[in-house]
Design a protein around this nucleic acid. Structure first.
Lengths: 159, 159
DNA sequence: TCCGCTTCAATCGCGCACGATATAATATAC
DNA sequence: GTATATTATATCGTGCGCGATTGAAGCGGA
């Protein structure tokens, strides 16, 4: 007498829920470690992005993290207020804002990288397992982020 | 001259970032579909949980979704205001709040399940691939959610 | 030159997610 | 049987995440 549960849609069978709950678990695992550094996880990601390529525009950071200015602008302002980075208008195109790490921000990123590695060391997973899993998830993400692939979803319900 | 990028910590090599960005991608894919039903993704998960086992307490829902009352209480109030579920104090233990789907909520869940399937059908992945990936991610989540496993993370930096 | 179109960042509103705390009900200790 | 501890839910403040909108800067064509 539970017709809805009879399908293959149970929570534990859903890939999206596996991703959703794993994301929450990662956040909970990172939080106490990043708290000591005064960082949130998205802020840590921004520092990582700038560590790979400094002096990025807001859009370029967004392209790497799959975020947009409505999320990044206030986040970047907080990191700037904390002295971890500097924002300045591009001289040749005043629409753009270029973001660069300060020395303090660069040092903080070094500390934060240690956090990642100590956590990675705790999760019992071989390098090969982690790589396979990461690549599969990234491929899935790229499909979901592809407008062309997603355009037809739900069409059967519309027409 | 980019010492930070030289390590294995690049964004695209991080499992946590793969999870984080895939979660965002799933949300973006679900949003337009669930918007038509007036639901958010977490609200959809709550309906799913109640579809599997109705008349759950707030804590029981939280145990299934890895959430707590500070997140669930306002979310449940919104779903109740929309007429999708009912909340009432347990007669034998007034501390607990029992949540049950209304007929309207049950019907909405049926509609929402169609959304999931149309999206799953669009993502080119075999059943076996999806199962393997899902199980790996869930196992990872369970490790990250295990206080005992996580207790030692960062110890090396403390002592 | 002027007008429209696009692009980039910023702003606003809303809904999670969660640490910290509050409040009420129950259970336990004595 | 009252004091204390524990449990369940609710409340509050902060920081994402994002749809929608705004405003300024650049770009195009007539």
């Amino acid at each position: 007498m539970t017709p809805l549960a009879a399908s293959a849609l149970d929570l534990d069978r859903m890939l999206c829920f596996a991703i959703y709950s794993a994301n929450g678990a990662f956040n909970r695992a990172y939080r106490p470690l990043l708290d000591r550094l005064g960082l949130t996880y998205p802020q840590y990601l921004v520092l990582m992005a700038l560590g790979e390529a400094d002096d990025l525009t807001v859009s370029e950071i967004g392209a790497r993290l799959f975020l947009e200015s409505n999320t990044l602008t206030p986040l970047l302002k907080r990191l700037e207020a904390a002295g971890h980075l500097v924002r300045r208008r591009d001289a040749t195109d005043e629409r753009q804002v270029r973001v660069s790490l300060t020395d303090q921000g660069r040092a903080l990123l070094q500390d934060a990288c240690g956090v990642t590695q100590s956590l990675a060391g705790t999760v019992a997973m071989t390098e090969a397992q982690a790589r396979t899993l990461r690549d599969s998830i990234a491929a899935l993400r790229d499909i979901l982020n592809d407008p062309a692939a997603m355009a037809r979803v739900g069409d059967a319900r519309d027409g």
